[in-house]
Simulated scan of single mutants.
Amino acid sequence: MNNPLKMSLPLKPNTIRPARKNRVLRSASLKVRTLQMLWHGMGFAFAALWIIPFVWVARTAFLPKESAITSGWFQGWTFDNLINVWHAAPFGQYFLNTLLVCGVVLAVQFVTLTMAAYAFARVRFAGRDLIFLLFLVQIMVPPDILIFSNYQVLNEMGLLDTKLAIMLPYFASSFGIFLLRQSFKQLPYELEEAACVEGASRLHILSRIYVPLSRPVYVSFAIVSVSFHWNDFLWPLIVTNSDSNRLLTVGLAMFAKSTESGAQWSDVSAATLIVAAPLMVGFLLFQRQVIGSFMHSGIKG
């Protein structure tokens, strides 16, 4: 015979709490997974918006001219468009000019940025903070505002239509100085004091201590500088008139506006792919180094 007192006892609370905890954990994990799926979906949507035009350009560059505007994607791919475009305009000269401008500007910027950043970070002199504030003000000034004044200065110096005219306004960078100064200030000052005790000069300290320890910042700035000058269009267009001094972006615009290739989508797409391919290939080959340099070059206070 069953005991009525035993049957009327309520369930123990210890048997209820684990079930509630499991339901709460399952609902929390479902929310996390839903948010992750939403974020991933947004990321893929933005990636598609960016990559669809590039895929269309790449597809059109390798299709015959009569099939460029059709809906087919695999209708006899050919390299004739790239070959014809390369010989129709002096893209080889444009490539050399662009590589020369990007390389020389970056090399000079490394020198000027290193000297200025070290002076603002470690050297005490009168008016240091005020001068540094003026450098920060330059970051807020768009470069296009200074086009007219820079053009007048270069015209008086007789440097128009030269590669030096393209490079000269960019030999110093206020953003690079700010970025490198913050990196130098994060390094322990005891390293410099120990080197001074050993009799090292400032240049020796700068080249053996500060520059190697700030390598991620240099890589990050190099990526930004090369990308900017590779894609720069307005300033090289204004100060150059001859093919011997034009850059890739200006050469591409001149080629696209020409009467022979204005309505030829295959030729224009092939020329665009020639200009954009080096940066794309470089990023794909060194994407780990690129991402790592930006992750390790964060700015702290």
Rank of each mutant, 00 (worst) to 15 (best):
V224M: 15
W73G: 07
L285Y: 10
W230H: 02
E260R: 13
W265V: 08
K300N: 04
F125P: 09
A271M: 14
W39V: 09
I274F: 14
L63N: 08
Y210C: 05
F255A: 08
L106D: 11
L11N: 10
A277H: 02
R208D: 12
L206N: 08
L234Q: 05
G298S: 05
V226N: 10
N14V: 06
R288D: 15
T15C: 05
P90Q: 01
L154F: 06
Y170Q: 13
H87I: 07
I223E: 03
K12Y: 01
L279M: 15
I177N: 01
D267I: 13
V137G: 07
G298C: 01
S149Q: 13
S220F: 09
W39T: 10
S225T: 15
F283L: 14
Q152L: 10
N245C: 04
G127D: 06
W77T: 03
W56Q: 06
R215P: 00
F221T: 13
N231S: 15
A47Q: 06
M167Y: 11
P278A: 11
G41N: 03
S261T: 12
L168W: 08
F135T: 03
D267V: 05
V153L: 11
R26G: 05
F91I: 06
W265A: 04
T249W: 12
A48N: 00
S227L: 15
G298N: 02
L234F: 05
R20T: 02
A222H: 08
A119V: 13
S258F: 03
L206V: 06
L154N: 11
G251F: 11
L248T: 05
A126P: 00
F255V: 08
V24C: 01
L154G: 06
W39C: 00
H40T: 01
R26H: 05
A270S: 13
D232N: 10
Y151P: 03
M42W: 02
A61D: 11
